[in-house]
Design a protein around this nucleic acid. Structure first.
Length: 486
RNA sequence: GGUACUCUGGCAGAACGGUUAUGCGUGAGCCUGCAAAGCUUAUACAAGGGGGUUCGACUCCCUCGGGUACCUCCA
């Protein structure tokens, strides 16, 4: 599998000959997660699911930044402790992402639980003379790392002309960044340099190396983390260890809202809670995977509606295949000759089904292999769905037995989930559908029976079941609560 | 201002130095008791502008322009 590496600006092969080690920069837990977080994390979720589906072992670490000025500010304004704030939003995180069918990663380390590792890391930096202590804290000396700027393609002298850098007389160079901030205000920890808390970037260096080693496979996050966060991580880590940090830097594009940047000041932040309530997890996942991960994607009601249409097609095809064996065989008495020709026909049809399955299965895999092109992978999946819907007559039990495993595999990789079919309820549902269809055929002579048929449909609705009358059969589906709002 | 990314048909969005991407939408038709859906078919000579390289460019190079992101809050 190849992935676009930000550092080399080229596609790099992921080494799958051994366990693949992935580190994803997670969220700062001071507020609700939004659709932008969802996209990044869903992309990585599909990456891991694809690798795992291919029998590749992974170790996947995603941190929580639970010490940060924003958390402290929020705690102060709400008269709570920083820990109360971070705990609340970590819980909130899991509610959101479990709801999006994101599989939990190997470990979710927190900065506050790794203070000792961080202090040890800083000590090494000081010993190597790339960091220095002042009366405000400990700073990494950017000038000591000659490759500084290699990830974000920035030049040090150009950065220095930037005016947004806080002036701090204690720093040797305005570009130097804090690895330890001295402060007696809670939350605070003892350190060789005095009480204080870690800087933003150091936790990721310390924790990724602790869990994944000095050199691991994939390090990622949103594009906005390239500078300064990941640039600084590289500087610290490579200065400390002397070896290459991550092999591949994978960055996911931003989500804009109706063409505008999502920001609190504009007031257009879409929380995951909000979008989940209105669209459910599957449509959001389809949306997040509809474009290439490295490019920006624009969130709008129109685009979500398109995914809803696709999702309904997927559901219909899936439920139909799942229910094939429940449909009444309509063959009456047949001569042997007829039966034989039927069988021949079936063999040809199965051959056709298998060809489609193999072809689209290969397309699906090669799309993901090539820099995780989820757009093309989805297309392969949709082609199977369309084939099923367009060839209702060919969807025999045998055909379903060939198609369903592949369909389920793709859905598993993409993280699309339909409710399990309740085998007890199914008998009742099938009886109702059978009865309704009897009324419907009777109604061809006496229209009064339509009322009875409709009553049954209402009853099914009450059981949270919707029906779709196809040419030869009625397919039922669990209803989904989609409000179709932005 | 700097850096990076990006600019493909009404919209979304891929691939590829030479062949119709595809999907959504739209039109027509089919199916249909009604619903909802589904099916078939038609439909776009598309590549930001201008140069260049090439037998041939959407694809490579230059230039001009638009957009987005980042430039110590950020997924």
């Amino acid at each position: 599998m190849k992935l676009l590496d930000t550092l080399s600006k080229a596609e790099q092969e992921v080494d799958v000959s051994k366990k693949v080690k992935i580190y994803l920069c997670g969220v700062t837990v001071y507020d609700e997660s939004h659709i932008g977080h969802a996209r990044t994390i869903i992309v990585f979720d599909v990456l891991r699911k694809y690798l795992e589906d291919n029998g590749i072992e992974i170790e996947f670490i995603q941190n929580f930044t639970d010490v940060d000025d924003k958390i402290i500010n929020k705690a102060n304004s709400e008269n709570k402790t920083a820990e109360e704030i971070s705990t609340k939003y970590i819980e909130n995180y899991f509610t959101d992402f479990d709801g999006l069918n994101v599989k939990r990663v190997t470990n979710y380390p927190k900065a506050t639980e790794h203070i000792e590792d961080i202090i040890e890391f800083i000590e090494k930096l000081i010993v190597k003379d790339v960091a220095y202590a002042t009366k405000n804290g400990v700073y990494f000396s950017v000038s000591k790392f000659s490759e500084y700027g290699k990830l974000s393609k920035k030049k040090i002298d150009e950065l220095q002309s930037g005016s947004r850098i806080e002036i701090d007389e204690q720093k040797k160079d305005p570009l130097d960044f804090a690895v330890w901030k001295l402060s007696d205000m809670e939350p605070t920890w003892e350190s060789p340099w005095g009480n204080g808390r870690p800087g933003w970037h150091i936790e990721c260096s310390a924790m990724s190396i602790k869990y994944l080693g000095e050199n691991f496979d994939i390090h990622g996050g949103g594009r906005d983390l390239i500078f300064p966060h990941h640039e600084n991580e590289i500087a610290q880590s490579e200065s400390c260890t002397g070896v290459q940090f991550a092999k591949i830097w994978m960055h996911v594009g931003m989500v804009t809202i109706d063409g505008e940047k999502m920001s609190k000041s504009i007031g257009n932040v879409k929380s995951i809670k909000h979008v989940l309530e209105n669209w459910g997890p599957n449509i959001i996942r389809l949306f997040c995977l509809s474009g290439h991960y490295s490019k920006p994607i624009d969130y709008s009601e129109e685009l979500l509606m398109r995914e809803l249409v696709k999702w309904n097609q997927i559901r219909l095809a899936y439920y139909e295949l799942m229910q094939i064996r429940d449909f009444e065989p309509e063959n009456g008495p047949e001569s042997d000759k007829q039966r034989q020709s039927e069988e021949e026909k079936e063999t040809i049809e199965i051959k056709e089904v298998n060809e489609i399955i193999i072809k689209e299965g290969e397309n699906f895999d090669s799309a993901l292999e090539q820099n995780m092109n989820t757009h093309l992978a989805l297309q392969a999946f949709y082609n199977i769905v369309s084939f099923c819907l367009a060839n209702e007559n060919k969807m025999t039990e045998e055909a379903a037995a060939h198609i369903l495993p592949e369909m389920k595999r793709m859905m598993k990789v993409l993280g699309l989930v339909l409710p399990e079919i309740d085998s007890e309820k199914i008998i009742e549902i099938n009886q109702l559908i059978k009865l309704r269809n009897e009324y419907r055929s009777k109604a061809k002579e006496n229209k009064n029976y339509y009322k009875d048929a409709d009553n049954i449909r209402d009853k099914l609705n009450g059981l949270n079941i919707e029906t779709s009358d196809r040419v030869t059969k009625t397919v039922w589906m669990y209803k989904e609560n989609i409000k179709q709002k932005n």
